[in-house]
Design a binder for these strands. Structure first.
Lengths: 218, 218
DNA sequence: CCAATCTGTCACCGGGCGGTGAATAGCAGG
DNA sequence: CCTGCTATTCACCGCCCGGTGACAGATTGG
């Protein structure tokens, strides 16, 4: 009797289980948010349909319906990336007068360094880019580099690099260095023997970066 | 009759199916080779017990027996990494007299760039390092950086960096740049807008690298 | 010659994956 | 009220993964 009683006990909290509202737009957004969160926190390794659906608290079928599968979802993330740059990296010169190309590049380098350090999603995407060459990640990579190039172009204004220096190649090296050092720090707190834990370490890194930029551009 | 005849036909080549010789050492080596090949060619993403066993042409059970699982196998790869540096990167100065620290770093940078470009396994490992922070990859990373540091130390000789420059930080930046640019080129033929396909592109990259080194160390 | 040992193989397990077809629950308009 | 329509869920598939226990063939030592 007691057992039966317990079995038929009115479930007090079952009706409270907040029912998912029927709202396609909201669900779509929830899926996109879950995808970005998952990618940022767990990385691309365990990034899949099931995981995203679990994270969004809905059925994976909806991902197929609303985004046409993982590919479409990744593409949607890529589209978001455009607005990212605008949000995360200041577009003005911070009140500075950038007299020389060297001034500009020093500032851009440090801004990019900080922005990348502060954004786990972006870091995961960069790591993904250098680990896989699928169509998925190629599009993501393209969106990222386009947004970045646009930002640099906007900041550049009318400044031109000094003659005799292949600015494109040198800048690629500098940005490569920033990306790699930030990626390395995110997984192992160091890079090539250089510690990258506390803010003091990062001061050293920033100083080295400035020195490199100044060494090239004066 | 004809059918029966065909069915009982003496199998001419069946006895020829080269039987796997019973040789533990050889099998162990085959497994290790298969693991390195697989990692180099396919990357760490699909690197697993089943794939290695398939590649080595033996049962996965043997991997457990001889290496104690994937972890032990990865560790064995790491051990091999020590000899890698000695094989791939010349230990002498190539007949050059390295008068200054700048000379040294320029040469080391270019050597490292070429060595990394030529070694897919090493590239995959670096990509792995920045994508995951498991114990497995941490050990691998350690072996790699130790080998690299040893090589640099040996090459350095008695040369010392100029005063007023944080050589450790600057060098970390330079090596980070090299690693990232090589990784990027391996998956997408470009990095931050800089094409990295033909040898002419790489000439430009090398020139930029030299310019950076010289800008810092003179 | 037999028994122990070593190398190698096979079959099987549970579980998570990506993917799909069918059912269900809430909302509109008549 | 019923009838569609749409958002959402469920149940199921085949596949491959890592991992394990039992077995078979060769080798060796007493």
């Amino acid at each position: 009797m007691a057992v039966a009683n317990a079995a038929v006990k009115i479930p007090l909290d079952v009706p409270v289980v907040e029912k998912r509202v029927r709202n396609r737009a909201a669900t779509q957004q929830a899926i996109l948010d879950a995808a970005k969160r998952l990618l940022a926190e767990e990385g691309f390794q365990n990034f899949g349909i099931n995981a995203v659906a679990r994270g969004a608290g809905c059925d994976k079928q909806l991902i197929y319906r609303y985004y046409g599968g993982l590919d479409g979802l990744v593409e949607a993330i890529g589209t978001d990336l455009g607005s990212w740059v605008a949000d995360r990296i200041p577009d003005d010169t911070g009140g500075m007068f950038l007299l020389t190309y060297g001034d500009l590049m020093e500032r851009l380098s440090l801004l990019f360094l900080d922005a990348l350090r502060a954004d786990p999603l972006m870091r995961r995407i960069v790591a993904w880019e250098v680990s896989e060459s699928s169509e998925q990640v190629r599009r993501l990579s393209e969106a990222r580099s386009k947004a970045l190039a646009g930002w640099i172009e906007r900041m550049r204004g009318s400044l031109v690099p000094p003659k005799g220096v292949d600015a494109q190649a040198v800048n690629a090296m500098i940005f490569a260095a920033i990306q790699h050092i930030v990626l390395a720090s995110a997984v192992s707190d160091q890079c090539a023997g250089l510690a990258l834990k506390n803010s003091k370490d990062w001061e050293k890194a920033a100083t080295a970066l400035k020195r490199i930029v100044r060494g090239v551009y004066g």
